[in-house]
């Protein structure tokens, strides 16, 4: 084991320790950022739900309900938003891209042709929430990789000492 570590190009213990310091500090900041992201998601989902509730109040209970949602037997359609994974600085990140497929369905059509303005607002808010969620997922991914790094660095330092 020690043979590989004593090589000239492997980083020393001090370097590794400083690296560990940085990662630990970064981890703390990331944890706070994740909480902020979750707070964003929470508030926008709340806002969207209130708009949905308003449109339900305007259009009536049966007009806006789960009964209007497509069931398993209804025609297939593709998602309007999809995510793809991009690698940046060795960290996997998820990006939102608009789907350009042909059979995209506007979910507002499920509830009628002339839907109230609140429904449009709710749709916009929920679409924005996707961005927040993706942001949150990215932070989560970073947190996980950092955890791996911390584990790895500790192993390294222990093995050298």
């Amino acid at each position: 084991m020690s043979g590989t570590i004593q090589d000239a190009d492997t980083p020393s213990v001090t370097e590794a320790s400083e690296l560990l310091d940085k990662i630990v500090l970064k981890q703390l900041h990331l944890m706070e950022e994740k909480m902020r992201c979750e707070l964003n998601i929470e508030s926008s989902i709340k806002n969207g739900s209130i708009h949905l509730a308003k449109s339900r109040y305007i259009m009536g209970q049966s007009a806006v309900s789960t009964a209007r949602l497509p069931t398993e037997s209804s025609a297939d359609f593709s998602a309007s938003t999809v995510c793809e994974t991009v690698e940046e600085d060795g960290i996997k990140q998820i990006k939102v891209i608009e789907n350009e497929a042909e059979n995209i369905v506007n979910p507002l059509r499920w509830f009628g042709v002339l839907v109230p303005q609140n429904m449009h607002k709710a749709q916009n808010i929920f679409q924005n929430t996707i961005n927040f969620i993706v942001e949150c997922v990215n932070v989560q991914v970073q947190l996980q990789t950092n955890l791996k790094y911390i584990e790895m660095l500790r192993q390294y330092i222990n093995s050298v000492n």
């Binding site: 084991m1 590989t4 570590i5 190009d9 492997t10 980083p11 370097e15 590794a16 690296l19 600085d89 060795g90 790094y149 790895m152 660095l153 192993q155 390294y156 093995s159």
Partner: peptide, 14 residues
């Protein structure tokens, strides 16, 4: 990042 990758390689080998 370079150091991290090196350590990664070392740990993997170990």
């Amino acid at each position: 990042v370079e150091n991290l990758n090196k350590i990664k390689a070392v740990i993997k080998i170990d």
